[in-house]
C-alpha cells in the first residue's frame, strides 16, 4: 500500500442551526467539529461511533452533499474549490447510502439508473447502457433479468448491489459507504461484503466505510477512526485500535460488543448513560461526563491528539499524564 493520501481532510466543521427556544436563543448542533484525517490510496478507512457522533455528516461533507462551514478537502493533491471543481470531485468520489430504496429513483429502471450519471458526464447513450449492463453483471445481477426492473421489484440486497454498480459507473477512485450494509439481513450482508472485497481488489478502490457495527469494520478496514460528538477520539491501524485502544471511549465501545463466546459473557457495563446531545456538548474533553478516568482538567481543556504509535493517535489527557511504558 502506498502512503500517499488520496483524500486529505483538514479541520472540517459543520454546525446545523436549529430553531431557538422560548426567547429565540439560537442554538446549533455541532455535528462535525474540527475533523482532520487522511485516506491513503487503496486503503479502507472505517469510521465508527454512536448516533450523533457525526460520522454520517462527515460522509456527506466528503462528497459535498452539504458544504462545510470551514475546513478543506484535498483530493489527489488538488484542493477542492481551487484546483478541483465539484463536478470533478463527484466523478472520483462516489457514495452509497444505507437506504437502498430511497437512493434510487422509483421511475427509473435499473439500467437507466446506472446509465444516467455517465450520460450527464458526456458518455453517449448506447455506450452508457452497455456499461450499465456490464456493471449489473459484475455486481451479480443478470442484466437479462434485472436491467428493466424498477426499484420496488428488487430485494434490499439486490438494490444495494445496484447502488454499488451505479457508484462504479464513474470509475471512481474512492467510494464512501455510509452504513451501506447495515439495513441488510446478515446472510445478505455477507454477500455484499464479499462483493465489496472483490471490487476493491479488482479496481484498486479506496473505501471510506462508515458503520456502527464493529465486527464489520474490523473485517473490512485497514485503518479505523473513532468519532465521539463531532470529534475524532482515536484513529489508527485496525489492529492497534482493536487490540491496543488508547482512548477510554474506544475501550468502552469495544467492551460493549456482545460476546460471541457463551463462556465469556459481558459481566460489567462498560459505559452508563446515553451519548450526550451534540447541541450542548460537554466542555473540555467531550467524553469526560461518561469517562471512568476523568479528572479535573478533562472538563476544562480539550485534549489534543497524542501519537501512541506511528499513525495511531488518540485525544485523551491520560495518555499525556502517563508516558507510554517502553
Amino acid at each position: 500500500m502506498t502512503a500517499s493520501p488520496i483524500l486529505q481532510v483538514d479541520g472540517l466543521v459543520k454546525h446545523f442551526p436549529i430553531k431557538g427556544g422560548l426567547f429565540g436563543k439560537r442554538q446549533v448542533v455541532r455535528a462535525v467539529d474540527g475533523v482532520t484525517f487522511d485516506v491513503a490510496a487503496g486503503e479502507t478507512l472505517g469510521i465508527v461511533g454512536e448516533s450523533g457522533c457525526g460520522k454520517s455528516t462527515t460522509a456527506r461533507l466528503l462528497v459535498q452533499l452539504i458544504e462545510p462551514d470551514t475546513g478543506q478537502i484535498t483530493f489527489n493533491g488538488k484542493l477542492l474549490g481551487r484546483d478541483l471543481s465539484l463536478r470533478e470531485l463527484r466523478r472520483h468520489v462516489q457514495m452509497v447510502f444505507q437506504d437502498s430504496y430511497a437512493s434510487l429513483n422509483p421511475r427509473l429502471t435499473m439500467e437507466d439508473a446506472i446509465a444516467f450519471g455517465p450520460q450527464v458526464h458526456g458518455v453517449p447513450e448506447g455506450k452508457a447502457r452497455q456499461l450499465a449492463r456490464d456493471l449489473l453483471d459484475r455486481v451479480g445481477l443478470d442484466p437479462q433479468r434485472f436491467a428493466g426492473r424498477y426499484p420496488h421489484e428488487l430485494s434490499g440486497g439486490q438494490r444495494q448491489r445496484v447502488n454499488i454498480a451505479r457508484a462504479l459507473a464513474f470509475e471512481p477512485e474512492v467510494i464512501v459507504l455510509d452504513e451501506a450494509v447495515s439495513a441488510l439481513d446478515k446472510s445478505v450482508e455477507a454477500q455484499v461484503l464479499n462483493l465489496l472485497v472483490d471490487l476493491r481488489q479488482e479496481r484498486k478502490l479506496t473505501y471510506v466505510f462508515i458503520s456502527h457495527d464493529l465486527n464489520v469494520v474490523r473485517f473490512i478496514s485497514d485503518r479505523v477512526m473513532v468519532m465521539y460528538l463531532g470529534e475524532v477520539a482515536e484513529i489508527g491501524p485496525v489492529e492497534d485500535i482493536y487490540e491496543r485502544p488508547g482512548h477510554p471511549y474506544t475501550q468502552a465501545l469495544l467492551a460493549a460488543m456482545p460476546s460471541m463466546d457463551p463462556d465469556q459473557r459481558t459481566e460489567k457495563v462498560p459505559l452508563s448513560g446515553d451519548p450526550p446531545n451534540p447541541i450542548n456538548p460537554p466542555s473540555g474533553c467531550r467524553f469526560h461526563t461518561r469517562c471512568a478516568h476523568a479528572f479535573a482538567r478533562c472538563g476544562q481543556v480539550a485534549p489534543p491528539p497524542i501519537e501512541l504509535n506511528p499513525g495511531h493517535r488518540a485525544a485523551c489527557h491520560l495518555l499525556r499524564e502517563e508516558p507510554k511504558a517502553a
Binding site: N194, N215, I220, V238, M260
Partner: peptide
C-alpha cells in the same frame, strides 16, 4: 455472516 472467526479482508463463507 456474523463474522465469527472471519479473517479480515478475506471473502466470507456467505
Amino acid at each position: 455472516a456474523n463474522l465469527v472467526g472471519a479473517k479480515p479482508g478475506q471473502r466470507l463463507d456467505a
